[in-house]
Design a protein around this nucleic acid. Structure first.
Length: 927
RNA sequence: GCCCGGGUGGUGGAACUGGUAGACACGCAGGACUUAAAAUCCUGUGGCCAUUGCGGCUGUGCGGGUUCAAGUCCCGCCCCGGGUACCA
């Protein structure tokens, strides 16, 4: 074999390992660059060909940066706590640490075969106590801090206590749970326990009774981003709402900063938009409505205070405490029935018929503070207890949900905004509400005639001056539920004393995960840690029995990579100030509202405390698309063991069956392998076309059940890692999803053989000439340098690959084997194909790794052309091209074109009406 | 429903700020080498028509528009993928 990739790749992987080629340290003489891949969860299935896509891209980028003289940090590790290992443990009794260890080993083997430039000395694993010590440490810091809204910053709880001692909580502007107001003297009179309870409501990590997503099948609570359409993201089990006492992180305190700072990030617009929607900022007003015949008032939140004159009823959430207070005796039964009905509807049912309108009148009336009309108060599930105040003023004319509700229950609709260009009309004839914030206000007393924006501002002034309420910003972002009733996660560094939580001493960290006899809840329904012996402090105080969720360990791992062996801190000041934050992060969009929100929050918190120097963790982020599977099908003739080839199938009644893509080549079934594949196919018969069995195909998700999983190990074995790397990039744009089809790989592999041949003679002996290169050869080289460099910067790796192909094709045609060309060529291809590049580099006589050399300099003078191939078009249709000297005047070009005989032919004796000449671009003759 | 992406040959995909549509590959067809096969190399390859030659028409989801010129810009629609689920 001329290009013996197996031998070459093994040789260089060994060389890199022995020479620690990819080990990095702080080096103030070089600029730093930090490239990060998203933390993989080492699953039992191992890597398929889709997983390394992003890793290859980031590896190319890293190697390129290194060749440009940067000191590149490019680490890898494992997000090793998690549900699959634990579910497996429940089934088999095997400790999840063992499963995890095995999976990690397998991942590492697979990664190593692809030839990545990771500094493995920096590997971290979230399940390692030396690592989760710092996860626990961060949690304790959150417990010990509160969020000062005025300073927009986390501050030590001591400063809060000092404030309480001085002013109680009357003047403080803090992010907190519901707490009653108290003065300094009331604070002083409280018992220690009462004080602790109050403080808990202010901590950034706090314990609270809240509505949570409970997943019975997994036996645990889940965060909002772990639930999709009423089912758990992992496993797809139903999820229900339940009130439970849980640990939460007060991420909502950071909502505004998380939103504003998105502007500073180089992330895709779509990803930023997903985060903006998730954070969900809305500006509006809170307004008190009096209750008719009572001293009570109800606070509502609205973003359209300008429509308050059109508020014809009020709606409160069924779960709201207000329903109890506002229900009158004669409606008691009806309301109870309604609330029960709502409670019994599962999340799934709610989602299934969102169009169904339900509700119940409470019996009470509120007074619209502007019209002084009595308006009925209804209870309906379309108002959520957890958002705003859990109560709304309903303006059916200008809110589609209120409109539908009003029509269903025959409530009045009053128009207060006229759409631009229209007249006021009878709302009785309306089929939908007018929701847009555009138009002129009518029927609204003092704000009549204003446009909506002015009206909002003016009515807010009035609301505030009359003491009816105030302007208010609300966020959709909820605090993160941080407890999981599971075993395989970080233990909370918390113990309980008199029913109140206290952190353990920081110098006692890590609090290690104890052994248990089974990975299941206890008989009392406690989490698995309830089974652990001695799960209490030396003094006998019970430790927390929940563990932390998956995102705990992945929220600060990028800091740990900077200083992975530091046992004095998460990251030292010196290393943090050198590496700062991640310059380039590559990963999937699936983390848009989970990991990427939590890490930003976690980072901002550490920033507030001064432990890290940057306010955002990931400067630039590129989302790689998914690699889809390409499945193959065979067609069984009904009720037989006969299989008909694709194009003949319509002549029979058939069943389509998935067939393993690994026994299909170019959609042609390997009949021998097929017979061996499964016993039931041993005696299969075939109806062939042209002596072949052709399979059908479709693009589907890559999964075992579709029989379309392709393992990178097999590709590496058959074609080599360089071919795999290059082919993954060649498939298409990084950000785009695309199907994997092994068929195309031959083209890339052929390319490598041609590249190899440039450096070798017919007998596969290295043959490099020291002759001076021709102008033409230099042009090919520098054209390639330019395009490849540009493409890497644009993350356009697929066009980069074609550029190499064009280059090698052209050099082959020129029979070029000159050192002056082939040496730089081996450098520019090195980021994509590091093994063959090292081999060629050493053939050229070098002893050191190619990655310690410099990226070749682009010399534009070699690219200068003297002529331009000018397309000549008539009425916009290109007819022929003409080589003309560059930089001629328009008049000269016109002269050349018009005297050309092809032009005369197309003119057919006519006079051109107009001639458009764009120098060095195109000529268009209008007839 | 709302908010983002995206529709280009048989397939994956190229085409910078409007300026030669289909680069580069795969596949397919034909040919060379070979006893044969593999490998390798050469030629052709969007569609339709013409093929004795030049060539002609058409073509980037659909319909319209702007322009000397539109895959690219504007308006209206259709389809696919992702996000979201009553957030007032």
């Amino acid at each position: 074999m001329e290009y013996n990739f197996n031998e070459i790749e093994k040789k260089w992987q060994e060389f890199w390992k022995i020479n620690k080629t990819y080990k990095v340290d702080i080096d103030h003489s070089r600029p730093k660059y930090y490239v990060l891949d998203m933390f993989p969860y080492p699953s039992g299935a191992g890597l398929h060909v889709g997983h390394p896509l992003g890793y290859i891209a980031s590896d190319i980028y890293s190697r390129h940066k290194r060749l440009q003289g940067f000191n590149v940090l490019h680490p890898m590790g494992y997000d090793a706590f998690g549900l699959p290992a634990e579910q497996y443990a429940i089934q088999t009794g095997q400790h999840p640490a063992i499963t995890t260890e095995n999976n990690v080993k397998r991942y590492r083997e697979q990664l190593d075969k692809i030839g990545f430039s990771y500094d493995w000395d920096r590997e971290v694993r979230t399940c390692d106590p030396k690592y989760y010590k710092w996860t626990q440490w961060a949690f304790i810091q959150m417990f010990k801090h509160w969020y000062n809204n005025s300073a927009q910053k986390a501050e030590p709880i001591e400063s809060l206590i000092a404030e309480f001692e001085k002013n109680g909580n009357l003047t403080i502007n803090a992010s907190c749970s519901d707490v009653r107001s108290f003065s300094s003297s009331e604070w002083a009179d409280m018992s220690k326990k009462e004080q602790q309870e109050i403080l808990l409501a202010y901590r950034l990590a706090y314990l609270a009774d809240i509505m949570v997503n409970w997943c019975p099948a997994l036996g645990t609570v889940l965060a909002n981003d772990e639930v999709k359409e009423g089912f758990s993201v992992r496993g797809g089990h139903p999820v229900e709402q339940r009130k439970m006492r849980q640990w939460c992180l007060r991420i909502s305190a950071y909502a505004q900063r998380l939103l504003s700072d998105l502007e500073t990030l180089e992330w895709s617009d779509s990803l930023k938009e997903i985060q903006r929607n998730w954070i969900g900022r809305s500006e509006g007003a809170e307004v008190y409505f009096k209750i008719d015949g009572s001293e009570k008032k109800v606070l509502i939140f609205t973003t359209r205070p300008d429509t308050i004159y059109g508020a014809t009823f009020m709606v409160i959430a069924p779960e709201s405490e207000l329903t109890e207070e506002l229900t009158t005796p004669e409606y008691r039964d009806a309301v109870d029935n309604y609330i029960n009905e709502v409670k019994n509807r599962t999340e799934r049912e709610r989602i299934a018929d969102t169009k169904r309108v339900t509700g119940q009148f409470s019996g009470s009336y509120a007074i619209n503070p502007f019209t002084n009309e009595r308006i009925p108060i209804w209870i309906s599930e379309y108002v959520l207890a957890g958002y705003g105040t859990g109560a709304i003023m309903a303006v059916p004319a200008h809110d589609s949900r209120d409109f539908v509700f009003a029509r269903t229950f025959e409530l009045p609709v009053i128009q207060t905004v006229i759409k631009p260009g229209e007249e006021q009309s009878s709302t009785a004839s309306w089929h939908e509400s007018y929701d847009a914030k555009d138009g002129v206000v009518i029927n609204s007393g003092v704000i009549n005639g204003l446009d909506v924006k002015e009206a909002i501002s003016k009515i807010n002034d009035i609301i505030e001056s009359r003491g009816l309420g105030s302007r208010k910003v609300n966020f959709r972002l909820r605090d993160a539920i941080f407890s999981r009733q599971r075993y395989w996660g970080e233990p909370f560094p918390i113990f309980y004393k008199d029913g109140l939580p206290y952190p353990i001493d920081e110098n006692k960290l890590p609090l290690e995960l104890p052994e248990v006899d089974a990975y299941l809840p206890t008989e009392k329904g406690e989490p698995p840690l309830g089974r652990a012996k001695n799960w209490h402090t030396p003094e006998g105080y019970q430790y927390e029995m929940s563990t932390m969720p998956g995102f705990a360990g992945s929220s600060a791992y990028y800091h740990r990579y900077m200083d992975p062996h530091n046992d004095k801190g998460l990251v030292s000041k010196e290393t943090n100030e050198y590496w700062e934050n991640v310059d380039l992060y590559i990963g999937g969009t699936e983390h848009a509202v989970g990991h990427l929100v939590y890490s930003r929050f976690w980072n901002k918190f550490l920033f507030d405390l001064g432990y890290v120097c940057k306010n955002e963790p990931f400067k630039k982020l590129v989302n790689q698309g998914m690699i889809q599977g390409r499945s193959n099908f065979i067609y069984r003739v009904k009720n037989t063991n006969t299989y008909v080839s694709y194009n003949l199938r319509e002549q029979y009644e058939y069943t389509q069956i998935h067939v393993d893509v690994n026994i299909v080549d170019n959609d042609m079934l390997d009949i021998e392998k097929f017979r061996e594949w499964r016993p039931e196919f041993k005696d299969a018969n075939f109806i062939l076309e042209n002596g072949k069995y052709i399979c059908g195909w479709a693009v589907e998700k890559m999964s075992k059940s579709m029989w379309n999983v392709v393992n990178p190990d097999l590709i590496v074995e058959k074609y080599g890692a360089d071919t795999l790397r290059m082919y993954e990039m060649f498939l298409g744009p990084l950000e785009q999803s695309k199907p994997w089809d092994t068929n195309g790989i031959d083209g890339v592999h052929k390319f490598f053989r041609r590249l190899w041949r440039l450096y070798h003679d017919k007998n596969n002996q290295p043959e490099i000439s020291d002759e001076a290169p021709s102008k033409e050869e230099l042009k090919v080289l520098h054209k390639t340098i330019k395009k490849v460099s540009d493409d890497i910067e644009k993350f356009s790796f697929n066009t980069g690959v074609s550029t190499f192909m064009v280059c090698v094709n052209e050099l082959t045609d020129l029979k070029c084997n000159k050192r002056a060309i082939l040496e730089p060529l081996s450098i520019i291809i090195a980021p994509y194909a590091p093994h063959i590049a090292e081999e060629l580099w050493s053939l050229l006589g070098h002893k050191q790794t190619i990655f310690d050399t410099k990226w070749p300099e682009l010399r534009n003078e070699y690219l200068v052309e003297s002529t331009f191939t000018c397309p000549v078009s008539f009425n916009g249709k290109t007819r022929f091209t003409l080589d003309i000297p560059l930089n001629l005047s328009q008049a000269d070009i016109e002269k050349i074109i018009l005297s050309n005989e092809s032009t005369l032919k197309y003119l057919e004796g006519k006079q051109p009406r107009k001639i458009i000449i764009v120098p060095n671009k195109i000529v268009n003759i209008v007839l």
